[in-house]
Design a protein around this nucleic acid. Sequence first.
DNA 1: GTTTTGACGCTAC
DNA 2: AGTAGCGCCAAAA
Length: 109
Amino acid sequence: MDETLREFFNDVYEITRQIPRGKVLTYGRIAALAGRPQHARWVGRAMAQSPDDKTLPCHRVVNSAGQTAPGWTEQRTLLENEGVTFRPNGHVDMKKHLWEILSADEVTS
DNA sequence: GTTTTGACGCTAC
DNA sequence: AGTAGCGCCAAAA
């Protein structure tokens, strides 16, 4: 694994850790924030392999469709417990819960 | 070295 | 809304 890639992983973990309670972030968005927009899949792999950091809130990470990870039904429960609303079909209400790194204060006017 | 795979994303239908 | 196809990149086989 290249040094740059390891750095990317580290950034991904750091960003994920900063997701506030009741908010979610997409793989692609995280990848972009980490500087590698094309490595969205790698973000997922980073979570799948679970780093040493057990406190990593990877359950707040969903794909662009707002769907939770396959094979991980618990994720939905965790998010609901944090106040994230799920649609009947199993999608997250991104419109409300998608976390924006740019302080929402400036976005709202 | 080549082929398949994957906690994905986007566009098109 | 849901499905399908193509693109992307690195690891695993």
